[in-house]
């Protein structure tokens, strides 16, 4: 691992001040940063430790929203009583990600900042516009089965965003609170992660030196139920091939409101708004779910090895909607 300076910050402002430009990285859990620094893909000259910041609370706001400190671990968030009770999709998504020990380290802010698993990004030498803008995208025409997208891709990059947590947050709706040299601002969660477009090296809406301090979840949809379904090869400890986080509210058998977000298939945590719209007012039947699933993948672009993700993602949607609307004993 390359040599870097280390500074531990004791306040958000001190962290932002210590973070000095592109050559700096914040470290929270470290599960992404150290992985990539060891293989020389991330090359920080200075690492600012944010573990000492007072961002460990999960706070119910008066308006019904839930404010989550950036340092709350994936484990703590997954088992937080409010999350378990009101945001099942988030709890389940968190628990489907990584492993027990990684979830204990990984933080809310860090998970939002996860980097892609594309092997061509990680190998340090293949063409990768994310790592070396302008070099090309070796994943196109290469091995692109597991961690490559069919939605939101561009000719410059097709890597999936690997997070499960973010899929749930995309479904719920959230704001990302950030602090930078110019003070605080909030970014809509759906605007936080950027499509690769022509500049896949720009992955998120943070400015240099900005730090995520909180994620504020929208209030739960009244009377809704939610769930997360992750499909993969082995039964655990694998990034999603396709996943679906859904929130559904029904009146009788009619769908009053619906949210669908997808993982493993998009270049960012993918909100399927058109599919949601197609569900509202429809009966909660397999036929409606299938129709919505089809709409969700309208315009999807399959690559050499990942065309199966389109039907697989559709299956994830249908099954998760079925679970979320099933009669309960």
């Amino acid at each position: 691992m390359r040599n870097f300076e280390y500074q531990k910050a004791d306040s958000v402002n001190a962290a932002v001040t210590a973070h000095a430009g592109q050559a700096s990285s914040f470290v929270a859990g470290g599960t992404t940063l150290l992985d990539l620094v060891k293989i020389d893909i991330m090359q920080p000259e200075r690492v600012v430790d944010v573990n000492g910041l007072p961002l460990y609370d999960v706070e119910a706001l008066d308006d019904g929203r839930l404010k989550i400190g950036a340092m709350v671990s994936n484990t703590d968030l997954a088992y937080h009583p409010t999350v378990v009770e009101k945001y099942a999709v988030l709890s389940e998504a968190l628990l489907s990600g990584a492993s027990t020990s990684l979830r204990n380290k990984a933080t809310t802010g860090g998970n939002v900042m996860q980097r892609v698993r594309c092997p061509y990004f990680r190998d340090g030498v293949s063409a990768c516009n994310k790592r070396e803008p302008g070099s090309g995208c070796a994943a196109i025409g290469g091995h692109n089965r597991s961690v490559h997208a069919v939605l939101g891709t561009s000719e410059q990059c097709i890597a999936t965003h690997p997070s499960d947590m973010c899929v749930a947050m995309a479904a719920i709706g959230a704001k990302v609170l950030v602090t930078g040299p110019n003070g605080e601002r909030e970014i809509d969660f759906l605007d936080f992660h950027l499509l690769p477009g022509d500049s896949p090296e720009k992955e998120h809406a943070l400015d240099v030196d900005e730090l995520i301090t909180h994620v504020v979840l929208d209030a739960p949809i009244e009377g809704s139920r939610s769930t997360y379904l992750k499909l993969r090869d082995r039964a655990s400890y694998q990034f999603a091939l396709a996943s679906s986080g859904v929130i559904v509210a029904t009146e009788g058998n009619t769908i009053r409101d619906a949210r669908i977000a997808l993982g493993g298939v998009g270049t960012k945590p993918w909100r399927a708004r058109e599919a949601e719209q197609a569900l509202i007012g429809e009966p909660a039947t397999e036929q409606s779910f299938k129709k919505a699933a089809e709409i969700a993948f309208k315009g999807a672009t399959p690559y050499e090895h990942n065309a199966f993700k389109i039907p697989l993602g559709q299956q994830a949607i249908v099954r998760s909607l079925t679970h979320a609307t099933a009669a309960r004993a």
């Binding site: 092997p119 070796a138 091995h143």
Partner: peptide, 28 residues
């Protein structure tokens, strides 16, 4: 699960790590 894969163009390995070369875990 198991297959060690190489890029047909560059000849470089693509899943030479313990996250993407899948071996069975407890849950399997």
């Amino acid at each position: 699960f198991e297959a060690t894969e190489y890029d047909e163009r560059s000849g470089l390995p693509v899943n030479n790590n313990y996250a993407e070369y899948l071996v069975p875990v407890h849950a399997d």
